[in-house]
Amino acid sequence: MRTLVHLSDLHFGRVDKAILRPLIDRIWGLEPHLIVVSGDLTQRARNAEFAEARAFLDALPSPRIVVPGNHDVPLYNLFDRFFRPLDKYRSHITDDLSPFHVDTEIAVLGINTARSLTIKDGRINARQIQEIKERMCGLGPEITKVVVTHHPFDLPENSPHDIVGRAKQAMAAIAACGVDVILSGHLHLSHTGHSAEDFEVGGHSSLIIQAGTATSTRGRGEQNAFNVIRIDGKKIRIERNYWQPEGSAFGIATPEHFEETPRGWVRAA
């Protein structure tokens, strides 16, 4: 079994600092095999914010898969935005924009969907779709395959946001390679969906798991939260950990259980 901790939308520069130490302690207590951070480490891509995000990451267990989000691209400095959009991210966080972790049970690939030409939206390009194929298609069925992006492939009902650009083309590759799980953020809301509900994917259904914001004060009606994903062969358990201010601790909502079937991942009975 593998335990993944899925954090998103940290937004250093606008965090609830009372959450940081309980969150770090909670994560260490989970003894995760891998930490996944699906973007927006900062609020305005400033050096001081990246330095705070770096210190937070260094306080967590490793290994870690981290991808940038749209807030990690400078907004107001137009020169930086268009000519060196992720220089600060590369300097403080990681120079690897396609991080990859693989072991005997899981393979996790991070994809950068942040772009200079959009304020909040994101997209996947043809080169990144090819990388998904190269990394994932050759792996055997005993490996649970996970793709990580900041921008979502699925939305809660009545969401005002858009899914990631070129989602249809990317999902075709994801289905062809038998990718099991897509992790993302951006919405500041926890949500679980299935690719078969929105895409023509030839009978394959991937789990699409959204994480809320782990530390930001911009909760959009939901308490700060992160996901614990327990992968045990053909079974996946998702535990939403929500911040409880009255107790200064994280509590677990009712877990969700999924199992793999010949048509893909479905909610367990």
Rank of each mutant, 00 (worst) to 15 (best):
L57W: 07
D25E: 15
Y89D: 02
N77K: 08
I106L: 07
R46L: 09
D96S: 00
K120C: 07
V73R: 04
A114Q: 13
E131V: 08
I129T: 14
E49G: 09
L97C: 05
R44Y: 05
E52Q: 15
T113V: 04
P63R: 01
E31W: 01
H92R: 03
A53G: 11
H71M: 08
W28K: 15
V66I: 12
K133C: 07
P68G: 06
K120H: 10
I106Y: 02
R127W: 06
F82C: 10
I119A: 12
S98G: 02
I93L: 08
L97F: 04
E52A: 15
G122L: 07
L109V: 04
G110Q: 03
R26Y: 09
E31N: 14
P32D: 02
S62I: 02
R46W: 02
H101F: 06
T104V: 01
G140F: 00
A51G: 11
L57V: 08
E134M: 07
T113G: 12
N70M: 06
E105I: 00
I65L: 07
F79N: 11
G122Q: 12
E31K: 14
L75E: 12
V67C: 04
D72P: 06
Y89H: 03
N125M: 05
D103V: 02
R127E: 15
D80G: 04
F83P: 03
Q43K: 14
L30R: 14
Y76D: 14
L75W: 02
P63G: 03
V102T: 05
I65G: 09
T94F: 00
L30A: 11
P85A: 03
H92C: 01
